[in-house]
Write a protein that binds this DNA or RNA. Sequence first.
RNA 1: UGGGGCGUCGUCAAGCGGUAAGACCCGGGUCUUUGGAAUCCGUAUUCGUAGGUUCGAAUCCUACCGCCCCAG
Length: 343
Amino acid sequence: MARLAVALSGGVDSTLAAWLLKEAGHELLGLTLDLGSHSQPGLAAAAKAAQELGIAHHVVDVHKAFHNQIVRPSLLAYNQGLTPNPCACCNASVKIPFLLNEARAHGCTGLATGHYARLLNSGSQLFLAEALDASKSQAYFLARLNPHLLPFLHFPLGDKTKQEVRAMALSLGLSAAASKDSQDCCFVPPEGFGALLQRYDKPRPGAIENSQGKVLGSHEGLHNFTVGQRRGLGLSAPRPLYVLRLRAERATVVVGHEEELWQSLVYGRQYLDYGQPMNNEPVSVRLRYARQGIMCKSITHKGGTVALELQTPSKGVAPGQLMVFNQGSMVTGSAFIYRPDDE
RNA sequence: UGGGGCGUCGUCAAGCGGUAAGACCCGGGUCUUUGGAAUCCGUAUUCGUAGGUUCGAAUCCUACCGCCCCAG
């Protein structure tokens, strides 16, 4: 059996993925990323998991790349009124590439991770695809991967449910079985990222206005808001107010009622094309993680941008977030949401 | 001190004689490998105080207390 690298975070998913591969007879090398400041507990958990599995383990220090390519740009994006997608960017430009490089340097033929996603063939082409358990699928966060990397990846959990994984880990007595699901952005400290932001830029306070331009109040920093947000505005009104959009130039937060949040026209840029599968499924788009795809009425490509008309309006579409296109379970492309009139 | 206005949940606030809306904040739950995001539930037996009118008052009347504005 081929020598394979497996990404070990110390959590239940990656540990069980490794176990499954080992059971299948692979010779494994566990790899863990050191992302910098809050990663010590994870490193220890990963080392323990490797020890329990009886596999070799290396730590790869990528804190510089992580910081320069993910942390800093994300914080700056927040300050520009965008809502970045650090996890998707991290998978594509830090996690997977660095792990795969390290894997190759150790003579491994590929890299396995504990993501809930699949790789499916259509015609002669390999596609990234949603996990069998669509509700837990993480293909969304992998949809910025360079398609040339797909043939070297393995997702052993793609046909498992989270429940199965946890139950197996528990019955095997793996200590990772008790680990909590990770959640929230991994680099945000408990105090919030306001403090982190101070290191690169200043918070940008400004006015809170309604869509007619009437000033209703003020806020402490644009980075505290995202489109669709309700809490944190501190304004009392006859009906709840939501953030409709963030105007970067003057750091203005525009608010309005829930019904003003729905939209059918959505624009994306930096389109990444994954190709055309053989199935004839209609194209749907996910405008955020943990939401079902929405059918597209029309899709217009122009340069690297894409203009969509949705069949059913969507609420709280936030510029900066990733849009991921599907045909059936196959991922066919992705782009970053933007508003043409913001330019 | 005269004249006017106002006192309803921690905050903003509806109510205008028929038995306390709503929002914010806060607390708790759900969701979540992006969004200090979303979502759900909870939160004043009581309306500045004391009397009075009424079957019934936060709503009307009287007094007192407090705050604000205009005069001076």
